[in-house]
Simulated assay, not measured.
Amino acid sequence: MTTPNPAKLVLASGEVFRGTGFGATGTTLGEAVFTTGMTGYQETMTDPSYHRQIVVCTAPQIGNTGWNDEDGESRGDHIWVAGLVIRDLAHRVSNWRAARTLEEEMQAQNIIGIKGVDTRALTRRLRTEGSISAGIFSGDDAERSDEELVEIVRSQPEMAGADLAGDVSADEAYIVEPEGEHRFTVVAYDMGIKTNTPRNFAARGIRTVVVPSGTPFDKIKEYNPDGVFVSNGPGDPATADDMVAVVRDVLKADIPFFGICFGNQILGRALGMETYKLKFGHRGINVPVKNHLTGKIDITAQNHGFALKGEPGKPFDTDFGPAIVTHTCLNDGVVEGVALESGRAYSVQYHPEAAAGPHDANPLFDQFIALLEGAK
Rank of each mutant, 00 (worst) to 15 (best):
F137P: 08
A370I: 04
D249M: 04
E311P: 03
I260E: 11
D332Q: 02
K277P: 03
T239L: 07
L371R: 11
T27N: 11
P352V: 11
A173L: 12
D171L: 03
I114A: 00
G130F: 13
I152D: 14
T185C: 14
G139L: 02
S231F: 13
K279W: 04
R52I: 05
T239Y: 14
A7D: 07
A203G: 01
I297E: 12
G310I: 09
D88V: 13
T275I: 10
I132V: 15
V325S: 06
G259C: 05
G83W: 08
V334D: 03
P315T: 09
I369E: 09
A134Q: 07
V244H: 11
G161E: 06
K115W: 02
A355D: 09
S145H: 14
P216A: 00
F320G: 01
R199W: 01
E43P: 07
V186L: 14
V211R: 13
E15D: 15
A307L: 04
V335M: 00
T239K: 12
I255F: 08
G116C: 13
R127C: 04
V247G: 13
P178S: 00
I324E: 04
A188W: 13
M38F: 12
L29E: 09
R18W: 01
V228F: 09
V55P: 09
I260K: 05
L271R: 04
P312T: 08
P358Y: 05
P315N: 03
A345C: 04
N264H: 13
T28F: 14
E70W: 09
R75I: 02
G310W: 10
P234L: 02
K115P: 00
G313P: 07
F34T: 00
T208S: 14
V230A: 15
D47W: 02
S131G: 10
T294N: 07
F262K: 03
P48K: 00
T39V: 11
Y276L: 02
I111S: 07
E104L: 03
V81Q: 04
A202H: 12
H351V: 09
K221M: 07
F184I: 04
F306A: 06
K219Y: 12
G343K: 09
A24P: 14
N64Q: 00
I86M: 00
A240V: 07
D69S: 11
G37F: 08
S13I: 13
H182Q: 10
R18L: 00
G23I: 01
I285C: 03
F258C: 10
E129A: 15
N331R: 09
K252N: 15
N5G: 03
Y276D: 02
L126W: 11
A142P: 06
F306C: 11
E177M: 13
A173R: 14
E158K: 13
I132W: 13
G76T: 05
A165G: 06
N232S: 12
A160H: 10
A361H: 08
A7F: 10
K115I: 00
G76E: 00
A7W: 09
I132D: 15
A173N: 11
A7T: 05
A307V: 10
V187N: 06
E341G: 01
G139A: 06
